[in-house]
Nucleic acid binder design. Structure first.
Lengths: 168, 168
DNA sequence: AATATTTTTCAATAAATTTTGAAAGTATAA
DNA sequence: TTATACTTTCAAAATTTATTGAAAAATATT
């Protein structure tokens, strides 16, 4: 397989994967492209390689920067901006977990807490049918959440140490 | 807060959460509704409570059954089918992980393996820029994958034992 | 075997999301 | 200051995804 073909396949796969998990396909494709590019790319480079418009590149690159996955790179003597992706995959992984936790998990916790304030007779089957599963979700979710938090604060070494410890 | 209000809020929140993670909003809402209902519901019940069409109910309930999150319940003397959600949240969690692993992670592994067969000079910076991050992704993803696999095979007790072991 | 009830399918439609591209904005250089 | 190079914005268009609803299929009842 040619390098270019392999790149294209990877970018395509990453895009599909991202969109299955609720992330804009183009955003993940740009991320994939930058990730496997040896040098930083300009907006025009990205437009050309992915065959997308300038506005699209601009929006999605900005989102990637907000996510902390892509950096602006200024080349001396160049007026244009260039972009480069974070190459440390462990850092990327941690960053994504951190962001989604903040953006999507935290609001859910708030709502679980809120709806559990519901009034009712603990003997009422309707009441129990609501409160019990919601409490269970809260319990398991906050466990998972603190695991994720620990994960985002840990370094790679810690993570693998943990895995070894777990599965020995 | 009234029970009905709390239910509605929960269903709404669950729907939003699901769609952020690439799962059809209606599917997660039906799941939430069944999860907090004391008794199994018929298609008509679901249509009425969520104000959606029969076809929509039918499709999404079928998907939920495919995911192993909802069961058909046959009531003696009743011709209609009723539906009930798996109430064991730990089981739900495991089931979702298991399914998404199979449906979405496995194909990605296949592609990573394939594109890593790419020909090239290991000294070439372009080649390295491609192969290195992709290898890293493969490494971290297969670690994460085996953790998830273990998770789906484990029981709840094992999970919490592990957490305690980890964070003590 | 004819009728009644319920479920399933799927083409058409609606809704949500993404993308475009041209105009406005900004910064640098002549 | 004016021109030039580049970036950002955002309403309109295109695309993708979800939903409807009526007809067909399946299943049960008389």
């Amino acid at each position: 397989m040619e390098l270019q073909e392999a790149k294209d396949k990877f970018i395509q796969a990453w895009g599909t994967f991202g969109s299955q998990w609720g992330i804009n396909r183009t955003m993940t494709q740009i991320h994939a492209l930058l990730l496997v590019s040896a040098a930083p790319l300009s907006a025009d480079d990205i437009m050309e390689q992915l065959q997308i418009s300038r506005g699209n590149v601009n929006m999605n690159v900005r989102d990637l920067i907000d996510w902390g996955l892509v950096y602006k790179v200024l080349k001396p003597g160049e007026r244009r901006e260039f972009f480069s992706a974070e190459k440390d995959i462990w850092k990327v992984f941690r960053q994504v977990v951190k962001q989604r936790r903040k953006r999507e998990l935290e609001p859910v916790f708030g709502i679980l807490e809120e709806v559990l304030k519901v009034q009712g007779d603990p003997k009422d089957p309707e009441y129990k049918a609501f409160v019990e599963p919601v409490r269970d979700i809260q319990k398991i979710a906050s466990r998972a959440d603190s695991t994720l938090e620990t994960l985002t604060k840990a370094d790679e070494n810690w993570f693998f140490t943990m895995l070894v410890k777990l599965f020995k």
